[in-house]
Amino acid sequence: MPAYLRLELRRLARDGGYLMASLVVPVAIYLFLGQGSHGDLVQNLVGTAGFGALGVVVTNGTSIAEDRSRGWLRLLRLTPLSPLDVVVARGLCAMVLAVLPIALISLLGAFYKHVPLGAGEWVATLLALWFGIAPLALLGLSVGYLCEARMAQVVGTLVYVGLSLLGGLFVGLDSFPGWLRALAKFNPVYGYGEFTRKVGEGGAPPALSTFVLLAWTAAFAALAAFAYRRSGRYS
């Protein structure tokens, strides 16, 4: 599995265009967002870093559909490599990729925007940003295994943009109508943002969003396992 993970990471490292493109939007958004209160500064940092991380874990997933259409998944299946190792390595790829936007936005936050977080708060924020993206990485894998290549792109974009907007990553939920606000609380991206903000502000992990994140992790892990098994029959 380490050999497979290395190969996939090497492939990613050679995809400079993709890596740049996946960083440009969150960085641009972050630079355009104005300064504000302490709360706004943390909100903007978490919102854009989370948005960037979401983008790369979703596209990592949808690229699986492309790999399948090229026969790569089938080729892997014909080697002694364990199928589970392949899925796990792809999930780890997503987690490695997520480091890039999180690190870049955080560096900008610390040294350019001067987000006033203490060292402990920074560590907590970074860890929350990183671990919290895991359920969405699983969702990305599911989309990649469930959909054909072009469909995966569309679904991936819908997930990326839709969940970000409805999850209040940029705009607080206050501007939403009541029913949407109630619904948003169960959005995994809302849970992700809320969890990270609270933890970043030095608070205890909020119960509801912790629960929402854990529940979605379980649900998306099950979905990814199902999607992977289903795709095995056709790959």
């Binding site: 190969l7 090229r70 790569w72």
Partner: peptide, 30 residues
Amino acid sequence: RAGRVGAMLQEGQLVPRVTVGELVGFVAGT
């Protein structure tokens, strides 16, 4: 899984952004 089988199928291009040596080396390694 036991490494008893090597296979070549008809369809499919090869996965992009790896070299021939890396790909053959990776498969051999498995």
